[in-house]
Simulated scan of single mutants.
Amino acid sequence: MRLTVLGARGAYPEADDACSGFLVEHDGFRLLLDAGYATFPRLLTHCAAAEVDAVVITHGHPDHCVDLNPLLRARSLADDPPPPLPVYAPPGALDAVLALDRPGMLDYTLHPAGDGDRLRLGPFTVDIRALPHFVPDNGVRVTAGGVALAYQGDSGPSSDLAALADGAALLLAEASYAEAVPADSAGQLSSALDAAAAARAAGAGRLLLTHLFPGLPGATAVAAARSGYAGPVDTADAGQVWELG
């Protein structure tokens, strides 16, 4: 299984960067996890729009889903359009993004997905757990070839994240803050310390920190996570490629 980081910033992209978007590949199948700001142009450096086989969106905040629009436009406006793109998301999460164009212009099949669902997408098995956030958020576990990765999306700390990531080769976990989450976001967002606790409880093989808010140095987040988790810790950065398994 190959994981390519298209972007991993939280809230909005800084210069020459992008928000949450991850391309997962196995046996020729391309699965896109989230499509935040500025991820679509980076996706095109790895594959054509028509070569994406399925999309899973964790939740409806624009830093995770807004570039679904140009992906669907590129497919639908092609001279030889590919089949409708299967898109999986919490019910109602993509209403605003999908309403940006006139009805019928974009070619996709939208599938509601939520807590406890198991999706079979090509060679992948995708298990979903609802995690606490300001809006419905689906944490996902993606398994293929006997290898699993877990992706939090955004959420507050939850024992369900550790269960989702149990024994995973890699946990892609939110670290909006290094240590303390402000009171107005407590329970809805996580820190690098929270990510470390989840990785430790899950026995994950590697921790990859994502969704760092603008201005948070990666080294600061990594240092905080290493204080609570003994395994390898890195920040997710656009352009990284991880071979799992």
Rank of each mutant, 00 (worst) to 15 (best):
D166L: 13
A113W: 00
A8Y: 05
A11Q: 12
L23V: 09
T58E: 12
A38V: 12
V222D: 00
P182Q: 07
A186Q: 12
A225P: 01
N138P: 12
D101P: 07
R120V: 14
R75Y: 06
S191Q: 10
A219P: 12
A197L: 09
M1Q: 07
S155G: 15
T45Q: 11
L193G: 15
L98G: 02
M105H: 13
G7D: 05
E14N: 04
Y12G: 12
D34G: 07
L110N: 02
T210G: 14
E51M: 00
L31V: 10
T58H: 13
Y88V: 02
D107V: 03
A219C: 11
D115K: 01
G153K: 06
A238P: 07
G245I: 04
H46N: 06
V241Y: 03
A78Q: 05
A49P: 09
P84Q: 01
D101Y: 05
P182I: 05
V233C: 01
A230K: 11
S191K: 08
P84I: 00
R9V: 13
F134Y: 13
V142E: 04
A180G: 08
P13M: 06
D67W: 04
S176P: 11
F213M: 15
A148Q: 06
W242I: 15
A15T: 14
A38G: 05
A201E: 08
L68M: 02
V126K: 01
A78D: 10
E179F: 08
